[in-house]
Nucleic acid binder design. Structure first.
Length: 563
RNA sequence: GCCCCUGUAGCUCAGUGGAUAGAGCGUCGCCCUCCGAAGGCGAAUGCGGGUGUUCGAUUCACCCCAGGGGCGCCA
């Protein structure tokens, strides 16, 4: 399974690899070696480097530099792809590829278009990505919101490598928290609720209580407090979910599936799972409760409650039922996007899946760290609406969808994130999302200018472009562009969307440098009197725009024509 | 007490065991008759500490220090 075997630049790499491997064979017929090619950290070293000589030196008992020399002496580059080579440092072999080869590789960008960067490596495999799943007892806060763009982008990355992806929201609509929400609402409606029973506060509870009142009608709310809470709680949940759904939509997070915790209880699924666990003899009754007691690498000897002493199953029990259900729905892979506060929950669920006979390796959880909202140097803690946390909606309204997504996606999930409202709002180069979008807008304006002049941009690659695209910046940009599929592959493998964000920043920067050279040097201008060259340059910047769009699309960020 | 995450430039963060560790912001100095200056060029500053594995460690393992989060009947 070589996902990019048809890419021209992969052919460059494979050819080079073969040339080197053959040289090694000639120099050391007794040695079996497979060559690893990598991108040197410093471009001065060339386009590809290999540590083959360092690896081989032990086996052939010669110093690495001599081994490198022997390899080079046996090199035979029949296809003529190598421009130059050298030995460096302790014995690295560096190779420079003929520049024209990189420009040729751009043909792949234009021919694949929107698909450039995608593969079908995992075609036929289904994956469910659980994301957000915020409790419906309050508005979505910025911490939960990190899981939105993150999960969405991870889902897109998985789609890029061929998975069929379901984006799923798990609604925690049962348990003590719902009663608490009900009581909190009733308190706002002036009912005699004990202050200790009020779990939720803030403006939103007041708003919510009014909505609940409008929905139900005062006369329909029973006088008995417990009964009333039982009625009001679920109505509150439904209203909160409407809110959360709207917030997600505004962040361009779409879900294919909504699963309700309540269903596992009401349909008896949880009960059945508990019975199964009992049969597997991984439970014990103790202190009036039922405990899960597996002996495995996940939990060792820790115990967790499945059924509370009051007879109600715990969240954990429902979650086992939910995850077992995911396996039963035939997913090849399960990815959960959870806040770091759930870290203790991860081994529990994995242990339970193992106990039930499901492969725990198929379940993978991305834990993201919390978000701190800052305004310049000052930490923002309070929210008008929610009281003690900043809501996603407030940030969204203040900075907009694209900056929100980019800022949440630009950091590695495990890194603690400072969200700077001031920076995110800036319409200037200080703001990375504007910087990237600006590069796209600039290219678009070149195309607009070409259209005005009646020039039609070429749709496909033509071999004659090579002669018009020989500036060193053009070769460097071409290399960066054809690297995109590998960035996507790596980001998908590691479930790390921030790699795409960083790639886009690199790409934008490289382009801005290139673009700015045209200010004082006509060789860098796209549209000139020279028709053949104009066509080649339009092809070139068209490729650039395509890669940029594909990257932005993965992150769910718009690619504006003008700003 | 135990578990998870983090510690890299003044600040916010990248960095698949390899060569001289990178960006952005901030600071200082330059550049608009020009396909968009929402831009570009140049300068300065660094892997929390210690052991170990390795030819080679910012990267892996262990310990220590610091910050954040979590820890059997909340979800």
């Amino acid at each position: 399974m070589a996902p990019f075997k048809n890419c021209r630049w992969i052919m460059i790499k494979d050819s080079l690899k073969q040339v080197i491997e053959q040289a090694i064979k000639k120099a050391y017929p007794e040695i079996q070696a497979s060559v690893q090619l990598e991108k040197p950290s410093n471009p001065q070293f060339g386009d590809f480097a290999t540590n083959a000589a360092l690896v081989l030196s032990k086996g052939v008992k010669k110093n690495p530099r001599d081994v490198a020399q022997a390899i080079l002496q046996n090199l035979s580059d029949k296809e003529g792809i190598i421009e130059s080579f050298s030995i460096a440092g302790p014995g690295f072999l560096n190779f420079k590829i003929k520049p024209a080869k990189w420009i040729e590789a751009l043909g792949e960008v234009s021919s694949q278009g929107e698909r450039f960067g995608k593969t079908d490596a995992h075609k036929g495999e289904k994956v469910v990505v659980e994301l957000v799943s915020a409790n419906p007892t309050g508005p979505l806060h910025i911490g939960n919101a990190r899981g939105g763009p993150l999960g969405d982008a991870i889902a897109s990355l998985l789609e890029s490598v061929g998975y069929e992806v379901v984006r799923e929201y798990y609604v925690n609509d049962v348990g003590g928290q719902i009663d608490k929400l009900g009581l909190s609402v009733l308190y706002c409606l002036g009912r005699a609720v004990d202050k200790n029973d009020i779990g939720y506060q803030g403006e939103y509870v007041k708003e919510l209580s009014q909505s609940v009142l409008n929905d139900l009608g005062e006369q329909n709310i029973p006088p008995d407090l417990t009964e009333a809470a039982g009625m009001v709680g679920p109505v509150g949940v439904e209203l909160m979910m409407q809110d959360i759904r709207k917030d997600c939509e505004a962040m361009a997070i779409r879900f294919d599936s909504w699963v309700h915790e309540k269903d596992f209880l009401e349909k008896g699924t949880t009960q059945k799972i508990i019975e199964e666990l009992k049969k597997k003899k991984v439970t014990v009754e103790k202190e009036g409760a039922l405990w899960f007691v597996p002996q495995d690498e996940f939990l060792e000897d820790r115990e967790c409650v499945l059924v509370k002493s009051d007879g109600r199953p715990t969240y954990f029990a429902n979650d086992i039922a939910y995850h077992a259900d995911k396996y039963r729905r035939g997913f090849h892979r399960l990815v959960n996007i959870w806040g770091a506060n759930h870290h203790g929950h991860v081994p529990r669920v994995q242990a339970a899946m193992k106990a039930l006979g499901y492969d725990p390796e198929k379940l993978q959880t991305v834990l993201y760290q919390y978000v701190r909202v800052v305004r310049g140097k000052e930490t923002v803690k309070m929210s008008k609406r929610a009281g003690d946390f900043v809501t996603a909606r407030e940030v969204l309204d203040e900075v907009g969808k694209d900056p929100l997504r980019f800022f949440l996606l630009m950091r590695a999930p495990e890194s603690h994130l400072d969200f700077d409202l001031e920076l995110a709002k800036k319409h200037s180069a200080e703001n990375p999302v504007y910087y990237v979008q600006y590069a796209h807008a600039r290219i678009s304006s070149i195309f607009a200018k070409a259209a005005e002049a009646g020039i039609k941009p070429p749709a496909v690659y033509d071999a004659k472009y090579v002669g018009c695209l020989n500036l060193s910046e053009e070769v460097a940009l071409a290399q960066l562009m054809v690297d995109f599929p590998f960035v996507v592959e790596l980001a998908a493998e590691k479930l790390d969307p921030h790699r795409i964000a960083y790639y886009l920043l690199d790409l934008a920067r490289a382009f801005q440098h290139y673009y700015d050279r045209a200010r004082g040097d006509d060789r860098y201008r796209v549209i000139t009197e020279d028709k053949a060259r104009t066509e080649a340059k339009l092809f070139f910047v068209g490729c650039f725009r395509q890669v940029m769009r594909n990257g932005l699309a993965l992150l769910g960020i718009s690619a504006p024509e003008r700003m």
